[in-house]
Design a protein around this nucleic acid. Structure first.
Ligand SMILES: NC(=O)c1ccc[n+]([C@@H]2O[C@H](COP(=O)([O-])OP(=O)(O)OC[C@H]3O[C@@H](n4cnc5c(N)ncnc54)[C@H](O)[C@@H]3O)[C@@H](O)[C@H]2O)c1
Ligand SMILES: NC(=O)c1ccc[n+]([C@@H]2O[C@H](COP(=O)([O-])OP(=O)(O)OC[C@H]3O[C@@H](n4cnc5c(N)ncnc54)[C@H](O)[C@@H]3O)[C@@H](O)[C@H]2O)c1
Lengths: 232, 232
DNA sequence: ATGCGCTTGTGAACGTGAGCACAAAGTCGT
DNA sequence: ACGACTTTGTGCTCACGTTCACAAGCGCAT
């Protein structure tokens, strides 16, 4: 997967950071800041200031030397680059614990996403209202996607059915998928999949946690060794 | 942040993939597979087979040339490397929609994590039972962490209080944090933070989605241009 | 034993990303 | 009008990560 495939493309690593910058900028805007320096914004976003400047430079030269960046203008430019000036309709498939939380979450609507359809296989859930939306049966999936022109699908079903749901979403025309099920989804090249996997994150933390313990124990051993040899 | 800081360290990128391999291996083990080739396992994990082999080679030489890897043995080795041979006690702070889903999720317990304590500031929630655990008041946080020897904390509170909770967790002795709140947390160097941010993932999808639309539109234009010039 | 076929483990080449350091370019006070 | 000061934008270097390609090693059939 070549990151900067096309001519004026933005590096993938930069794209992944733009939303973080956008959030920091929004907070600054709310606090009434007119301009920010790369140093300030970088601190707020938790990155190196040189990296921030380089990232922003891919979008164009929107800063003023000696001054910084106009907050509102930069919010607009980053939003535009990320495609957030329009609203993206989203379908959520699977309304168990996690799907419920997602459907009720206000943080999506405020950032350019509109949850437009909910789908679940459970007859108990179908026709119930969640967050003001009716839950549709699984059969309605393709029709909903086509009628509402949905390009982004969220999978919050049990792992065993995730691939099937994925296939159906893709064949109905969805080209971006956010997957919460702990499986690797197979999709055609033109479809983009991102996964959110909390177990993986915890396991990565466990790795580092164990390494801390191991090196601490090693420290103890060498201290004991030193003591065994005796003070000199 | 140097990835391979200490001598025999494993690259960070590799650590992030080990849990994926582990999951694929567990599935294979359930299906009764005795051995796997790097090719098969790589396909199951959605990566290049050379990358898989290099990743595994950091753990040691656990494969047999001409045959492949013994599934059970590799499961054990990867688990050990990730520190999953022991159970890690976890505290969840914030039991709203998301916290509820996390507390009820069975996928953690089965992978070396044990949710041991729930904490929320809402008096309505305190003393309720969620997934068989009592919800404790915020004041009890430090005491719980110390008494249960908790090293890993999960933050599922609203964004504005996340930093405060984080500080309290750290001062109580937590050294790994999984953060679901959309904020950048500031922590001492020795504390590891990982974030799960669904809005960011969606925004990255939106970026690519927009780019697809843009290039498609560009294709249309050039087709129109070609037609305007006329067939020759 | 020996050879054949298969799969691992890894050296080497390449591509991507991070960060330093500084010239270029602007602002602001005088 | 000018100089001092501030901050951006970027060339360059180095580190990290990915992928290729193949020799080394193992099992099995003969
Ligand atoms: N709950 C969590 O905190 C959490 C954490 C990490 C990962 N996950 C993953 O997220 C997914 C959902 O988790 P959950 O806790 O919400 O599970 P859940 O069992 O509470 O919900 C699953 C939902 O999917 C529905 N469903 C089942 N088959 C379906 C189908 N074929 N089509 C449409 N809907 C179908 C069910 O009716 C149910 O409502 C799982 O894959 C889980 O592993 C959940
Ligand atoms: N729900 C989602 O799908 C979703 C998606 C992405 C991100 N998030 C983020 O996850 C976090 C939680 O989301 P949610 O939907 O569960 O919110 P929620 O409002 O449903 O729950 C928040 C919980 O935190 C508790 N709380 C508030 N202040 C606290 C404090 N000082 N100490 C301890 N607990 C406190 C509240 O009592 C409540 O129970 C938020 O930061 C949200 O932005 C949620």
């Amino acid at each position: 997967m070549p990151a900067r495939a096309q001519g004026r493309g933005i590096p993938e690593a930069t794209v992944a950071r733009l939303p973080v910058y956008l959030r920091a900028l929004s907070t600054l805007a709310e606090d009434g800041a007119g301009t920010v320096s790369s140093e300030e914004l970088a601190t707020a976003a938790g990155v190196n200031s040189a990296k921030l400047r380089k990232d922003l430079s891919y979008l164009g030269s929107y800063g003023t030397r000696g001054v910084g960046y106009d907050v509102d203008y930069l919010v607009y430019q980053v939003s535009r680059e990320l495609g957030l000036t329009q609203d993206w309709p989203v379908v959520i498939v699977g309304l168990g614990h996690l799907g419920h939380a997602l459907a009720n979450y206000g943080g999506f609507a405020s950032r350019g996403f509109a949850i437009r359809a909910l789908v679940d296989a459970d007859p108990e859930l179908v026709d119930q209202q969640i967050a003001g939306l009716r839950v549709h049966p699984l059969e309605a999936l393709e029709d909903l996607v086509r009628r509402l022109g949905i390009a982004i699908g969220v999978i919050a079903t049990p792992a065993p059915v995730a691939q099937t749901i994925c296939d159906r979403l893709v064949s109905a025309g969805v080209s971006s998928i956010l997957n919460f099920a702990p499986v690797v989804l197979a999709v055609p090249d033109e479809v983009e999949v991102r996964k959110v996997d909390m177990s993986i994150e915890l396991q990565i933390l466990a790795f580092h946690e164990q390494r801390k313990l191991a090196t601490a124990a090693l420290g103890d051993v060498s201290r004991e060794l030193a003591e065994a040899v005796g003070p000199r």
